[in-house]
Structure formats: C-alpha cells, structure tokens
C-alpha cells in the first residue's frame, strides 16, 4: 500500500526509538525479491519487488531498428523505455512519456551501455522495456538493477551486472535506500550505480544539499549496500538452474541406491 500523503510531510523522519518511519535502521535495505524469466514472449525478462516498488523488465534483441534512421552502421544501439503505469503513484500519472521518463530512460541506457559489446551487432538494436507497476521511491535505481538482470537472462554477452541504490541524508543522518517519503522530505538524495566489472561508478546523480566532505561517506555506505544487492541478483539468476541440478542429482542418487539393493 502506498503512503497516502499529500504535500504534508511529518516533522521528523525518525521514530522515537531511533529507527526510520518504516522501522528500518539507517543501514538497512527494504526487502528485495527478484525473479527472472517471468515474461514468456520476451527474449529475457525479470521482475523486482523492492519495498513497495514493483517493476517488470523485458529485453528484446538483437533485432532490426525502427525507425530505421536510428540505426548505426558500425555498432548496435541500446534503447531503454522506462514507463510508469497510470496507477503506480497516488495521483494519476499521465500515460504520455514526459521529461522525467525520458531522462530516466537515458540514464539507464548510459549506465548499461559500457557493459555490452554493441560493436559486434552493427545495424541492430537491443531494447529494454521497463514497466513500473507500483512506485515508492528509488524507481530509477530499482529499474537499473532489474534491467541488468533481464539482459543477463536474455543471454546477451555482458561484462558484468549493474547494481544501483540511492543513498541520502534525512534529518542530518546518512541513510541508505530512501523510500518515497524520505526522498521527498529529506535533505539530500544520491542515486549510485556500479558496474562490477572493474567496480566503476556508472551513475551518479545528486539532488539536495550536503557537504562535499560527506560524499566519501555516502559512497562507502552505498558500496556495502550494493554488495548485498549484487548477491541477490546473482542468486536470482542462478537459483532457477541450480535448484533443478540439485533435484536431478538427488533423484539420480536414489535410483543408484535402488539399483544396489
């Protein structure tokens, strides 16, 4: 359930016991659930539940570029379509892609592009469709994370996965994984994405006010959280296959035992 709050934010974003409004510690993530292979018609797909965010991603490609004039003769292109459903936020979101959606599509595309070998597929396009079904803060980070997962599920060669998280400052304290209300009422907000190949930052945006000296603290805290997210991504990709492997091994062991008897 989204929080129903209209331009009225609570005076403090911490409870009396020192925890945040949703009961988390400053370094605690919201519960995350990831799944791959959820859309049958797509080449690769993934689904993510991150707190109250619910996001689908589908990947198609390599395939022909439409409109054709966007095709590059020397390399492929990566196109990202980030869309929010009309019912994903409290006020009805107008369905036409606006400034915000175009920006987020662009940053996700720029974030993932260095990991792909686009020069091997000239004249083609890879397309990622991201649908936000339910939004509660940090959808750009969640979308980047789920887009990387969908690309890996499609079997497109890539150097590594991308993980992303927002770090911020609320009531003077540095916290990870801002929820919707903390994002709006807090002091600062810093979305970060990291490519695990060489551990480079692939996205760094900033909004609000903070001290420049604090940036290193922000980055350290973010990196610890990102490692957890990366582990969840790896588990989501592997679990489907590993489970089946273990099952077959078990049944095989049983059969062998029967044969011995």
């Amino acid at each position: 359930m989204p929080l129903i709050i209209k331009d009225e934010y609570p005076e403090t974003l911490f409870r009396k016991d020192g925890k945040r409004l949703d009961g988390r510690d400053v370094n605690e993530l919201r519960p995350i659930k990831m799944e791959v292979g959820v859309i049958k018609n797509a080449d690769g797909s993934a689904y993510l539940e991150w707190g109250n965010n619910k996001i689908f991603a589908a990947v198609y490609g390599p395939r022909e570029v439409h409109p054709h004039h966007l095709a590059k003769p020397d390399r492929g292109i990566l196109r990202v379509f980030y869309r929010m459903a009309t019912y994903s936020v409290f006020d009805r979101k107008r369905p036409a892609p606006g400034r915000r959606e175009k920006e987020i599509s662009m940053i996700i595309s720029d974030c993932i592009e260095p990991l792909l070998f686009l020069e091997l597929y000239p004249g083609t396009s890879f397309e990622i469709f991201i649908e936000v079904m339910d939004a509660d803060g940090g959808t750009r980070c969640a979308s980047t994370t789920v887009a990387a997962l969908a690309l890996a599920d499609a079997g497109i060669p890539m150097k590594s996965l991308v993980s992303s998280i927002a770090v911020g400052k609320i009531d003077g304290k540095i916290v990870v994984d801002l929820s919707g209300i903390e994002d709006k009422a807090g002091n600062a907000d810093l979305p970060i994405a990291i490519t695990w190949y060489n551990e480079e930052l692939s996205l760094l945006q900033f909004d609000g006010d903070m001290n420049l000296d604090e940036l290193n603290d922000f980055l350290d805290i973010a990196k610890n959280a990102l490692k957890d997210i990366h582990q969840i991504q790896l588990d989501a990709l592997k679990s489907k296959y590993v489970k089946l492997q273990e099952e077959t091994n078990k049944s095989k062991g049983k059969n062998e035992k029967k044969g011995d008897e």
Partner: peptide, 10 residues
C-alpha cells in the same frame, strides 16, 4: 561431471 552455473561478471 556437475558443472557450475556462472553468470555475467563472475
């Protein structure tokens, strides 16, 4: 032989 499942970046 049982093979390890690996993912991009591993």
């Amino acid at each position: 032989a049982i093979r390890d499942v690996v993912v991009p970046g591993e």
